[in-house]
């Protein structure tokens, strides 16, 4: 189960949430269905039924419909042709672009976010730390349309930074740069990905226990040896998990790209969007569904990897 671990481990990572200590533990694992029914325990779950139903109607039904319809031809017959169109030509390119965009922007953000988190944890002042953490919480939330336009003001043809660069004799637009490209989007996405990574990485770095560092140093380890054998292996799982979160985030992002490029950049969410808005390919009314199913597939792979990595990570960081 990949999805449950998303929540479970983020919390255990940050080291609080009660660690389940207050929960009654009687017969949790070995409870059989028969006992479950006999003791009337099912009544206990009635209270969450409205919530589950709501989620079922407004989230699961739409999602399942997308996947099911992806296998339907225009006359409702079963077919795989949506997928064969969806994974070829311009749509294949879109998947390639999307994955490339998400990989690169997540990689950069992982690296920069790690550096910032290290710098923050190493800083003596509590104020700086509080400001950066709060700021990260807010900036990580600055996705979408406003972000796109503030980057138009910065790196667009007449943006402040583009203008300054032109003044010192380097007009980026004469050197193949465009804000409205995959490269441009990568730069913009960092604005919400880096803060996310900072928030993800501060707790595991905090959790590197002083005892371990002291032990390593009293045994005569060098700084490189510490990172090679202790710090690195400990931080690798949360780092990888964080990377996967960022990847998913960037992969699903629609608003920023749509606003920035007026829906012209060939990435998967944009393609689905333009299929929804009526640019339907004749004979493939359910092509969008196939692309959607493809997206869900990619995200599920990332989520499964996240679950596996997190299980490893949570072993140490308690």
């Amino acid at each position: 189960m990949a999805v449950p671990s998303l929540g479970e481990n983020r919390e255990s990572q940050s080291g609080f949430g009660g660690n389940g200590a207050s929960e009654p533990q009687k017969g949790s694992a070995g409870m059989s269905v028969a006992r479950f029914l006999r003791y009337g325990n099912w009544r206990r779950f009635m209270g969450v039924l409205p919530f589950v139903l709501y989620l079922g109607v407004f989230l699961l039904i739409p999602a399942i419909t997308v996947v099911v319809d992806a296998f339907k031809g225009d006359s409702g017959n079963f077919t795989l042709s949506n997928f064969s169109v969806g994974f070829s030509g311009v749509y294949f390119e879109s998947f390639k672009n999307s994955i490339q965009l998400s990989l690169f922007s997540a990689l950069i953000a992982t690296f920069v976010g790690l550096l910032v988190a290290l710098a923050i944890v190493a800083s003596p002042g509590r104020t700086l730390r509080a400001v950066v953490t709060a700021g990260s919480g807010v900036f990580a939330n600055t996705g979408g349309v406003p972000l796109a336009f503030s980057f138009v003001a910065t790196l667009g043809n007449f943006g402040l930074v583009a203008e300054l660069l032109t003044k010192i004799g380097y007009n980026p637009y004469n050197h193949g740069f465009s804000l409205y490209s995959v490269l441009g989007l990568t730069i913009v996405y960092e604005y919400f990905l880096i803060p996310l990574m900072v928030l993800i990485m501060i707790p595991p770095i905090d959790a590197l226990r002083k005892e371990w560092v002291d032990a390593a140093s009293s045994l005569g380890a060098s700084r490189i040896q510490f990172w090679r054998y202790i710090g690195g292996p400990l931080l690798a799982p949360p780092l990888l998990a964080g990377f996967l979160v960022l990847f998913t985030d960037a992969f699903a992002a629609y608003a920023t790209a749509a606003a920035l490029t007026s829906g012209t950049i060939p990435i998967v969410p944009i393609q689905i969007g333009s299929l929804i808005s009526g640019n339907v390919l004749v004979g493939h009314a359910h092509l969008g569904n196939a692309l959607g199913a493809g997206m869900i597939g990619v995200v599920i792979i990332a989520a499964i990897m996240y679950g596996l990595v997190q299980r490893r990570a949570s072993r140490w960081l308690r």
Binding site: V3, L6, F58, L59, I61, P62, A63, I64, T65, V66, D69, T248, F251, A252, Y254, P269, I272, G273, I276, G288, N289, G292, M295, I296, V299, I300, A303
Partner: peptide, 14 residues
């Protein structure tokens, strides 16, 4: 886990 574009598509069809 489910991109909002995909949810929208599902909402329209279902």
């Amino acid at each position: 886990v489910i991109p909002s574009v995909v949810i929208t598509l599902g909402v329209i069809t279902s």
